[in-house]
Design a protein around this nucleic acid. Structure first.
Lengths: 217, 217
DNA sequence: GTCTATAGATGGATAGAC
DNA sequence: GTCTATCCATCTATAGAC
C-alpha cells in the first residue's frame, strides 16, 4: 500500500484520506496511530502535520465531509412531489444505495461520534438531526394523507434509519444479493412497516417478561 | 465514585465490572485506560491484575457473560408454542425490554467486537449467530403458515434486529415514552413489517439514484 | 513538502514488600 | 489482596535541516 516517497500535495492528501478511512474503519479512532497512517500513505509520521493540525481535526474533517456529501446526495435524489409512499420509496432506495457504496464512511460516522470533542460533536449531531427530519417529514405527510398508519412517526423514523443503516454492518459486494435486490427488499419492508397497522397478536401485558429479564441481570 | 481502599475480593470484582462497563460505554476499549478503571474502583492500577490476566481478557469476559445472559433470558421468555405472530411479538417484547434495561452492555457487545482478538471474536460471533437463528426460525415458521409475507427471511432477521437494537442508541429512562409504550410501538412496527406485502409505490428502476450518489462520491 | 530526531506524556504489564 | 515503584513500549506533536 506504500506510495512513492516524495509524491506531493494533492496526491498525498487524497492518499491520507483513503488510508485514514480504512484504518478508522478497521481499528477505530483511538486505536489508529498516526504512525500506521503515515506508513500506509508512504510518508513519515511528522509529515502528516502538513495536512491537519492534529488527529482530532482529521477525524472531524472526514466525518463532516461525509455528512455534507450525504445531504447533498439526498437533496438531489429526493422527490419533492408525489405521494408519501413514493417519496418514502425514493428515500429508502437512496439511503440503501448510499450505504452500500460507502460502508466505511457510514460506519465511521456512527461509531466515532464518541471520539469527537464536544464542539465538533455538536456540529455533526445537528447535521444528523437534519437528515432525520427529512425522513420524519415524509412519515408525517403519509400520516396526514392516510397512506401510513404509524403509531408514532418519531419512533418510525428511528426504526427505519436503524434498520437501513444496519446494512453497512453485513452487506458484502460479493454476497448473495445485488444492490438492486437489497433495495427492493428493504423498500418492501419499510413500506409495509409504514402502512401496516400491526395490531398485536397477543393481548397479555409483557410485564412478566421484563421481570424475567431483570431476574437474570 | 471512589470506593473504600482495602475493600476486598468479591466486592472489588463487582466494582471493577461496573466501572469497566461504564468506561467501555463512554470511551471505548482502546481509549479506556486501566489507570482510569482503577481510579474509578478506588484501587491502584497494579491491583487490577488480581482480577484478570490482561485488558483483552477483561473485555472478553464482559462480552461473553452478557451474551450468555442474553441467551438464557431469551430462552426463558420465548414461547415454544403459539402462532408465529405470537412468538414474534414475544421476541420483540423481550428484546426491547432487555435492551432498554441494559443499554450499556448491549452497546458494548456491538461496538467492541472489533476490539476482540480473533479467537475471542469467533466465540462471540457464534453466540450472536445463534441468537439470530432463533428469530430467523420464527420468521421461517410464519412464512410456512402464511402469516408472514416477507420477501426474504434472512434480510427480515437482520432488519428487525438492527431496528430493535438501535433502541439502545436513543432510549432514555426519562424520555417521552415508557418501556411499555416502546414495546407496544415496536411490536406493531415489526408485525406490520413481517405481515405486509409492501408492494412498491413506484415501478421505475432505482438505477439513476445510484448513479447520482456515485457522482458525488 | 518531506525528512530525521526528539520532547513529553501515557499506556499495559510486572516485581516485590506488606 | 493491595500497595508502591518501575520497566518498556507507544503515542501525539513539535523543531529544524534539506
Amino acid at each position: 500500500m506504500a506510495r512513492i516517497a516524495g509524491s506531493s500535495g494533492p496526491r498525498t492528501e487524497e492518499a491520507i484520506r483513503r488510508a485514514g478511512l480504512q484504518l478508522l474503519y478497521t481499528h477505530g479512532y483511538a486505536a489508529m496511530s498516526l504512525r500506521q497512517l503515515a506508513a500506509e500513505v508512504g510518508i513519515q509520521q511528522g509529515s502528516l502535520y502538513n495536512y491537519f493540525r492534529n488527529k482530532q481535526e482529521f477525524l472531524f474533517d472526514l466525518i463532516r465531509t461525509h455528512m455534507q456529501d450525504l445531504h447533498a446526495a439526498l437533496d438531489a435524489a429526493l422527490l419533492r412531489e408525489g405521494s408519501a409512499a413514493e417519496r418514502l420509496q425514493r428515500f429508502v432506495e437512496f439511503h440503501v444505495a448510499y450505504h452500500i457504496e460507502r460502508p466505511q464512511q457510514v460506519f465511521i460516522c456512527y461509531s466515532e461520534l464518541r471520539s469527537l470533542e464536544p464542539d465538533n460533536l455538536e456540529v455533526i449531531v445537528a447535521m444528523r438531526r437534519d437528515y432525520e427530519r427529512k425522513l420524519g417529514a415524509i412519515l408525517d405527510l403519509g400520516r396526514e394523507t392516510g397512506e401510513f398508519q404509524l403509531a408514532d412517526t418519531r419512533m418510525g423514523t428511528l426504526a427505519i434509519l436503524a434498520m437501513l443503516s444496519g446494512i453497512c454492518n453485513w452487506y458484502r459486494p460479493d454476497g448473495r444479493l445485488s444492490t438492486d435486490a437489497v433495495q427492493a427488499i428493504f423498500t418492501g419492508m419499510v413500506l409495509a412497516l409504514a402502512r401496516g397497522e400491526g395490531e398485536a397478536a397477543v393481548q397479555a401485558p409483557p410485564a412478566p417478561l421484563t421481570r424475567l429479564a431483570a431476574r437474570l441481570r
